[in-house]
């Protein structure tokens, strides 16, 4: 049940993020949409690694080995994905700053060089 809720939350976040990327004309808002998309995918990945009744894979005493834990591998992957997402976000923000310096606006409609 918990896993299903997490999965559906993740899917909704991905869709909201996609909606934000496609409908907003402001570059910063598009970047926020991208971040939501990112978080949604992370939650979907975590829900795949969920084990019913499991706890966080932190084993305080050696005698706790063998209890039910959730899968640590998707968690490690998501840690990587968060860091990469952060790098990409910083990169996009840099572009936004540069674009603002060029045209004095963040409206995507004002950038017509590559429009066809």
């Amino acid at each position: 049940m918990t896993g299903t809720i997490a999965l559906i939350t993740g899917i909704l976040l991905v869709l909201i993020g996609l909606w934000g990327i496609l409908t907003n004309r402001d570059i910063i808002r598009m970047i926020v949409g991208f971040s939501l998309f990112d978080v949604g995918i992370h939650i979907i990945m975590l829900s795949i690694g969920y084990v019913a009744g499991g706890t966080a894979p932190i084993i305080e005493n050696l005698s706790d080995i063998g209890k039910s834990y959730v899968d640590p591998v998707p968690q490690a992957l998501v840690l990587t994905a968060i860091v990469i997402g952060l790098g990409i976000t910083a990169f996009m923000l840099t572009y936004a700053v540069n674009m603002y310096e060029k045209k004095g606006t963040l409206e995507i409609d004002k950038f017509e060089e590559l429009k066809w």
Binding site: T2, G3, T4, V51, A52, I59, Y69, D71, P72, V73
Partner: peptide
């Protein structure tokens, strides 16, 4: 979708 009831082999080894 169903939550796993056991870990896959590699993760079970890690844990």
């Amino acid at each position: 979708y169903e939550s796993r009831t056991a870990l896959p082999e590699v993760s079970a080894h890690y844990v």
